[in-house]
């Protein structure tokens, strides 16, 4: 398995997962994961249903442990600090997440959705809110479409727009890492393409980790890919290498569609 001292190229390691195990009650969902995630690159996690990729990504922002009888063992280091030694709420302000099904706050407007992390986590002035909302919506490639109606309810947007709204909202919190848990699986192909394009831009400022069940998507957007199977990390490396010259037999079987 790849770790800290193997080829990540010139990129420093942003998040370092070490000996991570996650449980639901007695059953173990992921086992002894070691993964180094490079800064300002897109890392994809792929694998068949039930392989633990969602569980893994939810351990990166400490969301997994909020589940019923859920437990985590191991460490996740962010810039050298073990996230599991810090206050969970503060961790989540540094590691943001976008979910599979867009979940904007239905009772709020577009503006209030995007500014929610600022308003709820601090005391921003009106100007600070405006600036942050503008910046976030632009980064999420949504500004042009909503600039005339930021006070409209968030639910008036289409599915793809709502997902970009959720991305904007996550970005407004100014995270260091953005986690995306199958962000396009509920969207149509056009909306998906827009978001994939967006991911390519986001990696200039943020470290992105994306879980996807769509291998072609992983091949399109990511710099590095990790393949999980039955809770274990089978292979991890530069995307091109993993897809064209897979080292493990299991990886090759999955990629060529023999199962999954």
């Amino acid at each position: 398995m790849e770790g800290l001292n193997t080829m990540l190229g010139e990129s420093p390691v942003k998040m370092d997962v070490q000996s991570l195990n996650a449980f639901y009650g007695e059953s173990r969902a992921i086992q002894d994961i070691n993964l180094a995630i490079p800064e300002k690159q897109v890392t994809a996690i792929i694998g068949p249903s039930g392989c633990g990729k969602s569980t893994l990504i939810r351990c990166l922002n400490r969301l997994h442990e909020t589940g019923f009888k859920a437990r985590v063992e191991g460490s996740v280091f962010l810039d050298g600090e073990d996230l599991y030694q810090l206050d969970a709420t503060l961790v989540r302000r540094r590691v943001g997440m976008v979910f599979q099904k867009p979940n904007p706050f239905a009772t709020m407007s577009i503006y209030n959705n995007v500014s929610a992390p600022l308003r709820f986590n601090g005391h921003p002035s009106r100007q600070e809110c405006d600036d942050a909302v503008l910046r976030a919506l632009k980064q999420a490639a949504l500004w042009d479409e909503v600039k005339d109606r930021v006070d409209d309810p968030a639910t008036s947007l289409s599915g793809g727009q709502q997902q970009r709204l959720c991305i904007a909202r996550a970005l407004a919190a100014n995270p260091e890492v953005l986690l995306m848990d199958e962000p396009c699986s509920a969207l149509d192909p056009i909306a998906t393409a827009k978001i994939e394009e967006l991911i390519g831009q986001l990696k200039q400022e943020y470290t992105v980790v994306i879980v996807t069940h769509n291998m072609q998507q992983a091949a399109r957007v990511s710099d590095r890919t990790a393949f999980l199977y039955l809770g274990k990390l089978i292979e991890y490396g530069p995307t091109e290498d993993l897809f064209e010259r897979p080292k493990e037999h299991l990886t090759e079987s999955y990629i060529t569609g023999r199962f999954g």
Partner: peptide
């Protein structure tokens, strides 16, 4: 999902 979204924002 509403609670999760809020949790993920560090509230």
């Amino acid at each position: 999902s509403v609670r999760e979204a809020a949790l993920a924002l560090g509230m």
